[in-house]
Amino acid sequence: MRVLRSGIRKLARRPATYLTFGLLAGLLVLIILAVAASGGQGGDGGGGGGGGRPEALLLLTFPGAYTLILQFVLGLGGLFAVIFGAAVAGSEWGWGTLKMAVARGESRSRYILLTFGAVSAFLVVGLLVSFGAGVLAAFVGANIAGVSTDGVGDADTLRKLPEEFARGWFAMTEQCAIGFAVATLARSQLAGIGIGIALYFGETFAGIFLPDIVRYMPFNVANAALGNTGGFQGGPDPVSQATAMLLVATWLFGSLLVAAVFTERAEITG
């Protein structure tokens, strides 16, 4: 528990934590406020060829806005999770702090797994903060755009949110574990982030050519676990949500196993 508590304290003091979740929340707020601003003008102008505008305003229309904001956070958050996981794991090697822990007699695999445990705990906080910022922005945006906010307290939607949130956190944790494992194998923060991003986008593009395989790959199953129906036309058909959850768990534990076994057996020379 000491290592886990220490991991959480370290992440709480780490600028990368605030940069990652700040960017996610900031982007979300900017988009929502942009939608609000353009939607408001469209309403004032009385239509005028803005076919997309009413659809964009759904982002400001409660209770549906809750789900859309959560989907947005989880969708874009996947990429941020990969980067965050890679940054934390890679820096342990790059800064030599893993070396120090091992030289103090700490168990290598325990240290790595508990470090990831701290990252995973921060994903919950990051998700909550980003989602909260998004909801607040949507509420403000709705007022700017003149959209009714009557649905904010919709009991049925609010009741479903925790489950969707938990599923989303699980999927994001899996994506974070991919970045974490990649950076561990690369023993480098920068290489881990670079390879993690390449895998994230590579999987999306590979879906065009190998849809039957890619639908089982980590980022696709994470997307499917959230109930999303594929990123773009021509992409693979997502697996069912139940299968996706199983595959997410497999990728998550598989990634952590790879990271732990690699660290356990690694010759630490840096």
Partner: peptide, 20 residues
Amino acid sequence: SFYPFLNARENLRAMGATGA
């Protein structure tokens, strides 16, 4: 080897959380 974003006391506390 230390965490550059932590101060000396926090770094020693982080190190102290491992091993003995």
